[in-house]
Design a protein around this nucleic acid. Structure first.
Lengths: 132, 132
DNA sequence: CAGGGTTCGTATGGGCTCATACAGTATGAG
DNA sequence: CTCATACTGTATGAGCCCATACGAACCCTG
């Protein structure tokens, strides 16, 4: 958990030059890569509550990086899409992500990374299996 | 990071029967095991800011589990010590911790756990080495 | 003794997230 | 069609944490 906290701070620090935090950057990058989604879909994808997702979208929309467009088929729903202004930011996010990942990978080989992921998944499964 | 979040929630859920969260339980258990400390020392040990540590101690003190005693040698400092009432709670915390750890360890052998810890430490080192 | 610099605990304001409750909308059974 | 149910996004209140700033107390140097 300490490592996770450091990780979040580390990403946040590197993203600070874009005035974004990790949640904002992740959501923006996801929308830019996979196209328009509803807020609920994004919330599920980002492991975030719907309310928190709405807040993140508010912030990105206020900065002109995202647009809310009414869904033609469902009037409850917004379709969240990136603006043209977002493409540059998304590129810079990707660049930062690449650098950060490379830094983190130092001294850790592919096999160890896979094993790490595997163990973490098993931990999650153990927790999920215990209390539904 | 998702695993860490789940872990915190998982511990919190198990500690809910004691009306404690993970920070409170950790701090209380630490003080109970290693005796009186200053708030700053506890903050460093718990990976928590001094202000947050003060809040946690406030809560535990209000429930009669901890006492603040003036330090005879340094009038700025409180000495944080467990009360007699805390011993029972500490035992129950330890019991919960044992159960949780056992649950989590299912399907993960000793070697894998050590490897996990090793990789996480290396990740932390990589982050620490990058930006002092 | 000063005097400045440091450290302690606390107060304050802010950020991020959640849980809950709500109004508007969609959907399916009758 | 009608109504109950489910779902969407939002508002609100709460919890937990941080960063900063502050007064009080300490320590070191001269």
């Amino acid at each position: 958990m300490a490592t996770a906290r450091q990780l979040r701070c580390y990403y946040d620090r590197h993203l600070a030059e874009l005035d974004l935090n990790l949640s904002q950057a992740s959501l923006l990058a996801y929308v830019a890569e996979f196209g328009p989604h509803t807020q609920t879909a994004l919330a599920a994808r980002m492991d975030l509550g719907r309310a928190a997702t709405g807040t993140v979208i508010d912030q990105l929309e206020a900065r002109g990086l995202l647009t809310r467009t009414p869904d033609p088929d469902d009037r409850r729903v917004w379709r969240i899409a990136p603006t043209p202004a977002a493409t540059d930011v998304v590129c810079r996010i990707a660049a930062i992500d690449t650098v950060v990942r490379d830094t983190l990978r130092a001294g850790i080989n592919r096999n160890e990374r896979q094993e790490l992921a595997s163990v973490l998944v098993r931990l999650q499964e153990n927790m999920a299996a215990d209390q539904p």
